[in-house]
Structures are given as structure tokens and as C-alpha cells.
Simulated assay, not measured.
Amino acid sequence: MIELKDISKIYKTKNGEITAVKDVSLSINKGEIFGIIGYSGAGKSTMIRLLNGLEKPTTGTVEVNGQQISSITGTQLRQARQKISMIFQHFNLLWSRTVADNIAFPLEIAGVPKAERVTRVKELIDLVGLTGRENAYPSQLSGGQKQRVGIARALANNPEVLLCDEATSALDPETTDAILELLLDINKRLGLTIVLITHEMHVIRKICRRVAVMEAGRVVESGDVLDVFQNPQAEITKNFVMQVSGTRESKESIEQILVNYPTGKIVKLTFIGNKTEQPVISQIIKEFNVEVNIVHGNITQTTSGPYGTLIVQIDGKPNQVEEAFKLLESREIQAEVIDHV
């Protein structure tokens, strides 16, 4: 559906060249929700502008649904953009227009007859849960309602791709979850391909199947969300995973345990899928006569299933501790010994 091949984007400024994106190659499947995550300055916003043709790559190609977005121009590009819609962090609504008129705006530009516009707008208002707010103005809406208008407007021309540029960053956590659930529902109903740009791992784990992690213009890691959660490779990815696994908050507890129990091992256990429901801790205590002190635990739900982490202190005779590790390995539970914080 979307293919980026060896993409680089270099901006020329009076102070020299700035490389915003460097040597990026990605494949995004039709109908999937794909996340691109990175901190400010990572190149995420440039990436999204490359996807909809607002920027041309310095090198490489961008293909969306069989069309070379990176090379077409004029009428051909405008027609292609009608199938690539976008929603924004700060909504970008027309403040002098009602909800219905905001949603109708792209249909007007496309020359859709009024009767068809009215029907389509009603369908979209129902779809995004704004029934009864048709005649309200943006100033009369909450942040979540404004974003729902933005989503409805983006869907007006039946796009094939929906680009979301930090679409939930201006919202509170509860409203963020509601908007993500709406995007998930739209994806399932319409089979829409959705690309999410964000700096929040919560957004990725909530609705994305696959993710690419960006740093300094490069994709440093990519793959299925569960795989990335279970075995992050890059340091920046580990930091993002900590956002939702809660292990960062356990740092002081780990330090104290390392001081109080110098003979034991501090172990981070990682579970995925139905392994999160296995009573392995009680089993290793019973079978191997070891002491287990739970320091921190967390289970996170992803679209591919649950992901859990448990930090424990295990103490006992060396051979018994070793046998406990073998049991964990046999259950496909990842065990990482932490010897410093």
C-alpha cells in the first residue's frame, strides 16, 4: 500500500544543510494501523509531509497505492491527495463554520452536489459520534469533539489513507483513549490504512500493529509492536517502552533491593500473550525452594495481546536459582538479570 525506498530529505538553509530524514525504507500494508514514534526533531513531521506529497524527497521514492507521490505533480498530485487525508494536533478547523459546514468543506472543493454533501455529512456525523452537534461552532466544542470533526472532515472524500500527525497530543488521557478507539473502529469498518505519528508509546500500544522508531532522521528499529515491547534493541526504544511498562518508576525500589539483598539476583521477567496468566512465580518457589520478592509488576494491553513485566529478587542456592531460570526459559518467559541501575 505504502512503500518508502531509501528516502532522504535535506533542507538547505543559510547556515548550511539540515538532514531531516536519512535513508529510510518502510512498507505499510493496506488496511493496517502503522505507528511512527520519535521525540521532537526525529523527522516524524517531515515523514508525514513526504507521504502526502507536501514535500519531495531529496533522494528515494514514495509510493502510495501504486502511485509515485514523490514524482507526480499538478493535477495528478491533487487527485492523489484526495485519497490521502490528514488530521492534526490542533484540529485546523474553520472557526466561522459550523460542525456540518466544516465537514462539508472538502466536498465543496471537490465539486460534490449539495444534496450529496448533505447526505455524506450526516453519515460522517453519525460515524464520529457528533449527532446533535451539527450546528455548533468549534468554540462551543471540547477538544475531543473538535478532533472528531477533524476526523469526519478527513473522511469526507472516502480516502484510502489517513495520516494522523500527533492527533491526540493536545487531549487529556481519557479523551485520547476515546479518539484512539474511534480510529480503531473506523479502521475496522472502512478498511482504511492509518499512519500515526506520535511521541507517546501509549498511542502505539493502544491501536498499532507495527511501529517504526525514529531518531535523528533515521528509523532505528521497526517491527510488530509486541516484539518491540518484548525485546527493544535501541536505547530510545527502551525509553519509550518504559513509558507504558512502568519500570522507570521502580528504579528506587531496585536500588534498595540491590543494597538489602546483595546475594540474590534482581531479575526482570517479560511475558507476552497468555503467558501473563501462568502462575510461574508460585511454581518456582515450590519446586526449587527459592525466595522471591516482587519489586514491581505491570501488564499492558496491545492490539496483539497482553505484554507484562515483573521485576523480582530471587535468592537461594546457586543450583536452585539456575533451575528456576531453566523453568522460566522452558515457558518462553524472558529473564534478564539486573546487576546495576
Rank of each mutant, 00 (worst) to 15 (best):
S27F: 15
A42Q: 01
N52R: 09
T19P: 01
V24K: 02
S40W: 10
T73Y: 14
E32V: 08
R81E: 08
L54K: 12
G38E: 03
R78I: 06
T61Q: 11
L51H: 04
G43P: 04
L77R: 03
Q68P: 04
R81G: 05
L26E: 13
G16L: 12
I28W: 08
S45R: 03
E32M: 10
Q68H: 14
T19L: 01
N15R: 14
G31L: 07
L50S: 08
S45L: 08
R78Q: 11
K30W: 09
A80S: 07
N65D: 15
F34E: 08
I36T: 06
N52Q: 11
L26F: 11
R49W: 06
L50T: 06
V62L: 08
T61S: 15
S27H: 15
V21G: 01
K44R: 05
R49G: 10
E32N: 13
D23I: 06
N65Q: 08
T73A: 07
S45I: 05
N29W: 12
I37H: 01
P57M: 11
I72R: 03
G16S: 09
A20Y: 05
L54F: 15
I18H: 08
I48R: 00
I48E: 00
R49D: 04
K30L: 11
L54V: 13
G38D: 05
G41S: 10
G43M: 02
S45Q: 00
Q68R: 15
G43E: 00
T58N: 04
Q79Y: 11
A42T: 00
Q76F: 11
E55A: 10
I33Y: 10
I48Y: 01
S25F: 08
P57C: 10
I72H: 04
E32W: 07
G38W: 01
G41Q: 06
K44L: 00
N65E: 15
P57N: 14
A80M: 10
